[in-house]
Each structure stands twice: as C-alpha cells, then as structure tokens.
C-alpha cells in the first residue's frame, strides 16, 4: 500500500473506448466497426482496419470518475481527466485531456490521436485524474482500475492469457517439436510470449483435454492443466532470471513485459519477506554466484505450484476420487 502526502480521490475510475477510426493521406477516414473493440477484454484491434497504410488512428474515449472529485468543498481544484497512451517499445507517450460531459462531473469524454509510425505492436492506455492539491498543481489523485490495450497489428481484440496454448501433433509438427513425440506437452519460454505446445498425437490426450465435470476424466483434466501451468511458471521464471539487465554496480533490473510480471508475481514466494528489489538481487546473485542456486529450486517449484493452484486442484481431485469410490460402493 502506497502512502501519499496529499488527499487522494477514492472510488472507481474507469475508462472506455467508444469508437476508433483510422486515416491514410488522401483517403476517406475509416470508422472501425464494433468488432475491433472488446469492452470485456479492454482491447482495441486496429489491425482490423481495411485502409492500408493508415497513418493516424483516433480513439474516442470516455471516463467515469467519482462525483466527489468536483464537489464543492473538496480538497481538489482544477480537476483534469487525462488519458495516457504509452508504448515502451517506441518510448512513445501520448496524452489527451478529456472534457466533462455533464454538470455533475462524473462523465468525461474526448479523443486521443496516435501515429501508426509511433507504435510497434501493443500500447497500453490508462486514465488518470489530476488536480491542484494544497497549492501543488498536477497531482495525480486517482487512476483507472484497468488499462486498455491498443494493438496495431492484431485483427482480433483479445488480451490473450499470460501464456499461449497451441494444440499440435508433434510427429508432423514444427521440426523442433518432432524430437519430443513421446512428451504429452512441451513449454517454450523463448519467444515473445511463453507457449505450451500440447501434443495431440499423444494417446488419450484429446479425450482428456476435452473432458469436463466431476467424472474421472474431468478430474484428470483439471490436474493436468494445473501441472502444465506449473511447468509454464517454472520455465518462464528461469527464462526471465536468465536474461536480466544488470546495472553497472551489479544490481539487476526488472525486465519489461511478461518477464517482469512473472518475476513480480513469483519472487515473494521464492525469497519471502524481502522487498521485490532485494529478492531479485538475491536470486540473481545465487544464479551467477558460486552456491545457492540448487538450493533455491524447491522454492521456485513451490512458487510455481501456488500460481498454478496445484494444491487446491490436488485436494479437489482427491476428494472427487473419494466421492466416486463411495458412489461405486453404494
């Protein structure tokens, strides 16, 4: 919990993208239809645009903030609602001030324009509420609970999970998978997104993958999925600590993207009771140092199992089997 030296606005701040359009020079602007947006996943897929070589995209956005922000007698003045689009790959940050829609000051609306040439693939968009507090202008008094993703390449507005799942027959699949035909699944953490390749050639795999409910196959399905997830967490943890950026004084830095997210999630279980930065230093020095890396492995497994909810699933499986047995006996 962060402590702020000034009063912050409590309550929910939310952001929506209401429309998106793109424009290429000397062509009419194209309004993207609603399939390009997912309000549930909070993603805009600009790859759906039919205009080739569009140069600018304009997003119509709206935000809802607690009415307390603009109530008379509040500690805040000059309240502004600002949408921020950021792409870390291109070091690009675009901001736009929204305008209040109504007297109450809850609904704010505006547009944000961004250049295609400034975005690599995915940018994030968030909303912040800014005000003058105690005579200090520009204080951030609240931010949106969830961000949006603006994807300039994809034609489907999906956020994707932390990892990708591909079902593929290994025997006739990509060359590097052919060497693993006797494995039910393989995790690859090298790419832009970690991927579980599930071997559909493996006997019984398709049945178990499709199984649901509390029957024996359903129980096996759940425990298999949990085990796969644990494998993914272990693989991505190793991949992330294996490729750390190190400061001149030897301090490791948190990476961007999913590698950073994975480390932040797992480190409290791997090196408990330490700050994230200290924990990362500890893990790094054990990995590159003389000793301690081997001893750390059980903790990495433990952290992965917790993320993958192996303990819960295992308990439920055991209870489920017990119940099936009793039903058989009855």
């Amino acid at each position: 919990m962060k402590v702020f030296p000034y009063p912050r606005l409590r309550g929910t701040v939310s952001l929506r993208v209401d429309a998106a359009r793109v424009k290429a020079p000397e062509q009419p602007r194209e309004q993207l239809d609603s399939r390009a947006r997912s309000v549930v996943e909070r993603v805009v897929a600009l790859g759906l645009a039919e205009t080739e070589n569009w140069e600018t995209a304009t997003l119509t956005v709206s935000a809802t903030i607690p009415s307390k922000a603009t109530e008379r007698g509040s500690p805040w003045s000059d309240v502004a609602v600002v949408v921020v689009l950021a792409d870390r790959a291109t070091n690009t940050r675009v901001t736009s001030m929204l305008a209040p829609e109504s007297e109450g000051g809850r609904e704010w609306r505006g547009e944000l324009q961004v250049l295609r040439a400034d975005l690599f693939d995915r940018a994030t968009m968030m909303v912040q509420v800014v005000a003058t507090v105690d005579g200090v202008p520009g204080r951030i008094i609240a931010e949106g609970v969830d961000d949006w993703i603006v994807d300039v390449r994809s034609d489907a507005p999906t956020r994707e999970q932390a990892f990708d799942v591909k079902e593929v027959g290994f025997a006739k699949g990509p060359r590097w998978l052919q060497q693993f035909t006797d494995a039910p699944w393989i995790v690859n953490a090298a790419g832009a997104l970690p991927t579980v390749h599930i071997n559909t050639d493996f006997e019984g795999m398709t049945d178990i993958l499709g199984a649901e409910g509390r029957g024996p196959e359903g129980l096996v399905n759940e425990i298999m999925v949990a085990q796969m997830a644990a494998d993914v967490w272990i693989a991505v943890f190793h991949s992330a600590v294996g490729d750390l950026e190190i400061e001149d004084d030897g301090t490791p830095l948190f990476p961007h993207g999913w590698q950073g997210e994975v480390l932040r999630e797992m480190l409290p279980d791997v090196v408990p009771e330490r700050t994230l930065e200290d924990a990362l230093c500890e893990v790094h020095s054990r990995r590159v140092g003389v000793t301690g890396w081997t001893e750390l492995q059980p903790r990495i497994q433990y952290a992965a199992m917790r993320r993958a909810e192996v303990p819960r699933v295992f308990l439920e499986t055991a209870r489920g089997l017990d119940k099936l047995k009793r039903e058989d006996e009855a």
Binding site: Y6, V84, M97, V136, P137, G138, R139
Partner: peptide, 9 residues
C-alpha cells in the same frame, strides 16, 4: 513523476 503529471504542468 509518480505523484505528479508533468504533461499537465
């Protein structure tokens, strides 16, 4: 910058 928005100032 964590509590101040330079873009607004």
């Amino acid at each position: 910058g964590a509590t101040l928005m330079y873009d607004v100032i």
